[in-house]
Design a binder for these strands. Structure first.
Length: 411
RNA sequence: GUGGGAAUAGCUCAGUAGGUUAGAGCGCCAGAUUGUGGUCCUGGAGGUCGUGGGUUCGAUCCCCAUUUUCCACCCCA
């Protein structure tokens, strides 16, 4: 009986890891452009942190966490999201005492015990950023601009930005009242699921996929209708800034987000591709969260992106070009090839040789397979004369180069 | 957590109304007078047909269970 990777987990290798590394490096570049520093928090935290941070009524906390008791009898959880840990770190290290704002990004494994699907794993990886210390719409706009820049640099175009505003606590209270009043008038026509949500989480009712229900919601109040003057101005400014940055968006009152902590701005980048359709990046403002986790009130805004979902949208065909393959014929030549390859490697070049003792022809085939720019075979003649015929694998052109000048030629 | 498909070579998939040696394409390896790749041609390796049980003279095929995967809900990134 062979042992396989667990349900909802996977090995990443080959072309996929090359693409992943490429995506990661673009993310790091973009964050550098935006002056956002990296943070790496532990893979596990006290369970309590997530109960407080994510919200104890959310699905994530109620049924999706990998929790266990360690040998010190601590109740520990593998991180199901990274915002709460980053907030914890922000408070623990008094980052708020430094020059503000505090801008952080992370790329981290994340764990949720869910039913796996395309674009959904139990161990997945999230890239996200958190900006602390600004309550202005310009911070929201900058956060969105980061996600937009990453997507654009990855050439992911079949994606659409949806934005909405939930308003502050007062607006939400106000809205909930309005919404419940509205829903109560329709309760006899709503489906059973809607009626269940109506009492538990009214915001979610409008998400119903049932067409009959959707018809009833045409005139439902939206969170936008319930915004006070300040929240309204905030949202308008965000829209202005996005327009100025030429980031196209649609206002979508249905975007409400699943986590409890959002206030004012919420947004999602939604992908539609044959391999996966749905949210690829989601976030918003969470002005109450820092306080909730145990500090003073600090405004913050951020997002999370599923790396695997990003990878589905980003399919790069151009694999890395290697610099040179040095083949050989005979034992003396093999020793020489090893020496040469090593010298080139220490100069930072990508050099490879044959490890299987193959025929010259097979070595050339290998050189072709691994996608090298140049290939050369060393044999008795080359050892004697010191002159090599280096073949350009694209044009088939051969260059006569002295064995001592290979590095020069390649650089 | 609920409901439904799928599982056959490294990959993508055919197939057998239950019958001896289970196929294709791609990939891999090797040849085409022995020191040069990519195209073409030829040959080869590689599968206990997801796993366990049952029905049967006989199961890759039918039944049950189990695991994984995909889809629709639910939820999310």
């Amino acid at each position: 009986m062979s042992i396989n990777a667990l349900k909802g987990t996977k090995d990443i290798y080959g072309a996929e890891i090359e693409n992943l590394q490429k995506v990661e490096s673009i993310i790091r570049e973009v964050c550098k452009n935006f002056n956002i520093g990296e943070i790496r928090t532990p893979i596990f935290e006290l369970t309590q942190l997530f109960q407080r941070g994510v919200g104890s009524t959310t699905d994530i906390v109620q049924k999706e966490m990998y929790s266990f008791i360690d040998k010190g009898e601590n109740n520990i959880t593998l991180k199901p999201e990274s915002t709460a840990p980053v907030v914890r770190a922000y408070l623990e290290h008094n980052m708020g005492e430094n020059t503000q704002p505090t801008k952080l990004y992370y790329i981290s494994p994340t764990f949720r015990y869910e039913r796996p699907e395309a674009g959904r794993l139990r161990q997945f990886h999230q890239f996200g950023i958190e900006v602390f210390g600004s309550s202005l719409a310009i911070a929201d706009a900058e956060v969105i601009a980061v996600a937009d820049a990453v997507l654009k640099r990855l050439n992911i175009t079949n994606v659409k930005l949806h934005i909405n505003s939930l308003g502050g606590p007062k607006c939400r209270e106000n809205y909930n009242k309005k919404l419940i009043e509205f829903l109560d008038t329709k309760k006899d026509s709503l489906c059973s699921l809607c009626n269940e949500r109506r009492t538990k989480n009214p915001l979610r009712v409008l998400d119903c996929k049932n067409e009959e229900c959707q018809k009833l919601f045409v005139n439902a109040p939206t969170t936008l209708d319930a915004l006070d003057v300040e929240c309204k101005a905030h949202f308008e400014m965000l829209k202005t800034l996005l327009t100025q940055m030429e980031i196209s968006y649609v206002v979508d009152p249905k975007i409400v987000r699943g986590l409890d902590y959002y206030t004012k701005t919420v947004f999602e980048f939604i992908l539609s591709s044959p391999d996966y359709s749905g949210t690829i990046c989601g976030g918003g403002r969470y002005d109450k969260l820092v306080e909730e986790i145990g500090g003073k009130s600090v405004p913050a805004v951020g997002f999370g992106t599923g790396m695997e979902r990003l990878l589905i949208a980003y399919k790069n065909k151009n694999l890395t070009k290697r610099d040179i393959f040095i083949g050989y014929r005979g034992e003396q030549a093999m020793i020489k090839a090893t020496l040469l390859v090593n010298a080139l490697r220490s100069k930072g070049l990508n050099a490879d040789t044959d490890l299987l003792g193959r025929s010259v022809k097979a070595q050339m085939k290998y050189a072709n397979k691994i996608n090298v720019k140049y290939a050369v075979i060393i044999g008795d003649t080359e050892l004697e004369t010191g002159w090599l015929l280096i073949k350009d694998m694209e044009t088939s052109q051969e260059h006569k180069i002295n064995i001592d000048n290979i590095a020069q030629f390649l650089l």
